[in-house]
Amino acid sequence: MSKKNSLLIVCVTTALTIGSVATANAEDNVTLRFADWMPESAFTTTYGAKAFMKKVDELSDGRISFQYFPAEQLGKGSEALTLLQSGVADIANVAPAYLSEHLPLSAVVELPGMVTDSCTAAEKFNDLVQPGESLYEAEYKRKNIRPLFTANLGPYRILTNGQNLSTPLDISGLKLRTAGGAMAMTADRLGANPIRMQGSDVLPSLSRGTLDGVFWGLISVEDWSLETALDQMVPNLSVGSFNVTYSISDRTWEKLSPENKEILTKAGQYANQNHCDYVNRAEKEAISVLEEKHGISPLYLPEAELKNIQEKLTQVHKDWAEPLEKRGLPANAVVEQML
């Protein structure tokens, strides 16, 4: 037996022993184990996960409580489904980008131009992962999980170092870090060389010149100290995005009372809005901070050029959807529903 499998069995046994799955301490009292791969300092943790838990506590008068495990304490983002399906966690941060083999359609938010406003994107995506809707039926239902709310990280932008862009088409031949998947296809379409790497490796790669730039969310630049190695940004072209869903296992959901299900649903709606409001507000502030404090020059595309590039990038939508359609997945329909 592998070390990884042995560890998983120990975790499952421990979780069941202490009663992780919707443990009823009294008739209506429930404790839920919450696995999150993001650190407590992340804005998505503050405005998403913690806001959700606080609202649940408020709506339930403390009858629903959480054992919260941030920063990969129970497992990495790529292990979120296993944590839910095994019973190690009741709720987990499920990032489709880390689980593309399991949730390929959910990568729709990574397509260029798909996300220009975090709230619009989060609301549309959240609608699609509700029971009876296309994404839920095609992906989440089959994995025995149910999204409670979506946290969209806003549009990703092009940022470079030492390139003096006059148009995004100038990135042809540049080595740019992307999140892989659809973002890599976008970089290819613009003529760049997409490089997939962990966030922790980006700053040293920029500093050494082994990267020329990044596809990155502006509100996360300072979090990773990338402002020291970037000098130009394109704030009005969306080259993709990143979504997470905070999902509950069907095993746990079915054990909850109708009242507690309603509380989690309402708290999810609140957290969905709270998080996207922050993202939209923070990006506007980030543009000013990056320019005025860190000297990162903005390149705003004229409307005609922006439209021309966006039309060019719609081919990425088709290239992404085609192989999924061949697998019998409703990729084209999901694209249309998100636009």
Results as ranks from 00 to 15, higher is better:
Lys284Cys: 05
Leu16Arg: 14
Val88Gln: 09
His294Arg: 13
Ala121Arg: 05
Lys326Thr: 15
Lys312Phe: 09
Gly75Met: 05
Gly87Gln: 03
Leu74Asn: 10
Ala192Trp: 04
Glu303Ala: 15
Asp277Trp: 01
Glu79Cys: 07
Pro112Met: 08
Val30Cys: 07
Leu99Glu: 09
Gln310His: 14
Asn308Lys: 15
Gln198Ser: 10
Leu237Val: 03
Ser220Ile: 08
Asp277Val: 02
Ala184Ile: 00
Asp127Phe: 13
Gly77Ile: 12
Val115Leu: 11
Val56Ile: 03
Pro96Gly: 02
Asn272Ile: 00
Gln130Ile: 05
Thr314Phe: 07
Gln269Ser: 12
Asn5Leu: 11
Gln85Asn: 15
Thr120Val: 14
Thr160Cys: 14
Cys11His: 15
Glu133Gln: 13
Thr265Tyr: 05
Lys266Gly: 01
Glu123Gln: 07
Thr160Pro: 09
Arg281Asp: 11
Gly173Asn: 13
Asn164Lys: 15
Pro194Phe: 08
Phe125Glu: 08
Val56His: 01
Ser297Gln: 15
Asp188Ala: 05
Gly181Lys: 08
Leu84Phe: 08
Leu159Arg: 06
Leu153Ile: 05
Gly199His: 00
Glu58Thr: 11
Ala333Gln: 15
Thr120Trp: 08
Gln337Trp: 07
Arg146Cys: 13
Glu283Tyr: 05
Pro39Ser: 08
Ile263Asp: 00
Ala151Met: 14
Val244Leu: 01
Val334Lys: 07
Ala184Phe: 00
Asp201Ser: 13
Ile219Leu: 12
Val279Lys: 03
Val88Asn: 12
Asn308Ile: 00
Ala182Thr: 03
Met53Arg: 13
His294Gly: 10
Asn152Trp: 08
Glu133Ile: 02
Ala24Pro: 07
Gly77Leu: 14
Gly295Ser: 07
Asp57Pro: 01
Lys261Thr: 03
Thr228Pro: 00
Ala15Arg: 11
Ala182Pro: 02
Asn243Arg: 05
Ala229Asn: 12
Leu237Ile: 09
Ala97Trp: 06
Gly181Trp: 08
Asn25Ala: 06
Glu325Val: 08
Leu237Gln: 02
Met183Leu: 05
Leu169Ser: 14
Ala271Leu: 02
Val21Gly: 00
Leu148Met: 13
Ser200Cys: 00
Ala286His: 04
Met197Ala: 08
Gln198His: 05
Leu165Gly: 07
Ser166Leu: 04
Phe215Lys: 04
Gly191Leu: 04
Val109Met: 01
Ala49Ser: 12
His294Thr: 06
